[in-house]
Simulated scan of single mutants.
Amino acid sequence: MENLKRITFNPEVMGGKPCIRGMRVTVGMIVGLVASGHNKQEIIELYPYLDAEDIEEALQYAAWRVEEIEVPLAMGTA
């Protein structure tokens, strides 16, 4: 997804998981907090170095990823 500027990937940060702006805050962590009932303001209070746009992009990225379809490659027969 090209319009997501805050989601970063670095194999040396959190094992390459999608993170927020290169920090050690993963998209999965944000999604987990939202899923457990935390709202944006609560998350920002818990992690003051995040802002609302970080949370929005994490949710957008997660939604995009679950809609992705994996297509298995056909194995050739020889």
Score class of each variant (00 low, 15 high):
residue 32 G to W: 01
residue 69 I to K: 14
residue 7 I to G: 12
residue 1 M to A: 15
residue 70 E to P: 15
residue 33 L to W: 13
residue 31 V to N: 03
residue 20 I to L: 10
residue 58 A to Y: 02
residue 41 Q to K: 13
residue 12 E to S: 15
residue 49 Y to I: 09
residue 56 E to T: 15
residue 9 F to N: 09
residue 27 V to H: 01
residue 62 A to P: 02
residue 30 I to N: 01
residue 58 A to S: 13
residue 27 V to M: 00
residue 45 E to D: 06
residue 63 A to K: 15
residue 40 K to M: 04
residue 60 Q to A: 10
residue 71 V to T: 10
residue 78 A to N: 12
residue 33 L to K: 15
residue 26 T to H: 05
residue 44 I to Q: 06
residue 55 I to Q: 09
residue 59 L to G: 03
residue 36 S to G: 03
residue 31 V to P: 00
residue 11 P to W: 04
residue 64 W to Y: 14
residue 22 G to H: 09
residue 18 P to N: 05
residue 64 W to N: 08
residue 35 A to K: 10
residue 30 I to S: 02
residue 9 F to P: 04
residue 21 R to Q: 14
residue 47 Y to H: 12
residue 8 T to W: 11
residue 60 Q to R: 10
residue 44 I to S: 03
residue 78 A to C: 11
residue 72 P to W: 09
residue 67 E to H: 12
residue 52 A to W: 08
residue 24 R to Y: 02
residue 65 R to S: 13
residue 8 T to V: 07
residue 74 A to I: 09
residue 72 P to C: 06
residue 6 R to D: 05
residue 6 R to C: 03
residue 5 K to T: 15
residue 74 A to S: 14
residue 19 C to G: 08
residue 8 T to Y: 11
residue 16 G to D: 07
residue 13 V to A: 05
residue 52 A to H: 12
residue 11 P to Y: 02
residue 15 G to V: 01
residue 14 M to F: 05
residue 10 N to A: 11
residue 5 K to C: 06
residue 38 H to T: 01
residue 7 I to Y: 10
residue 37 G to S: 11
residue 4 L to H: 14
residue 60 Q to G: 01
residue 14 M to S: 09
residue 13 V to Q: 10
residue 7 I to M: 13
residue 53 E to H: 11
residue 26 T to P: 02
residue 41 Q to D: 05
residue 6 R to L: 04
residue 10 N to V: 01
residue 6 R to G: 06
residue 47 Y to C: 07
residue 56 E to I: 11
residue 65 R to L: 10
residue 8 T to E: 04
residue 42 E to Q: 15
residue 5 K to E: 11
residue 62 A to Q: 00
residue 2 E to T: 11
residue 22 G to W: 09
residue 60 Q to W: 06
residue 37 G to Y: 12
residue 7 I to S: 12
residue 44 I to G: 05
residue 30 I to G: 03
residue 11 P to N: 07
residue 68 E to L: 13
residue 27 V to S: 10
residue 23 M to G: 11
residue 4 L to D: 15
residue 17 K to G: 06
residue 25 V to R: 04
residue 67 E to I: 00
residue 29 M to V: 01
residue 63 A to P: 00
residue 76 G to D: 07
residue 70 E to G: 06
residue 27 V to G: 01
residue 42 E to N: 08
residue 31 V to F: 02
residue 38 H to D: 01
residue 35 A to I: 02
residue 67 E to R: 13
residue 8 T to M: 14
residue 53 E to S: 06
residue 4 L to F: 11
residue 41 Q to I: 06
residue 11 P to A: 03
residue 26 T to R: 01
residue 19 C to M: 08
residue 17 K to L: 14
residue 69 I to Q: 11
residue 64 W to V: 01
residue 67 E to F: 02
residue 61 Y to N: 04
residue 55 I to L: 11
residue 66 V to D: 10
residue 49 Y to A: 08
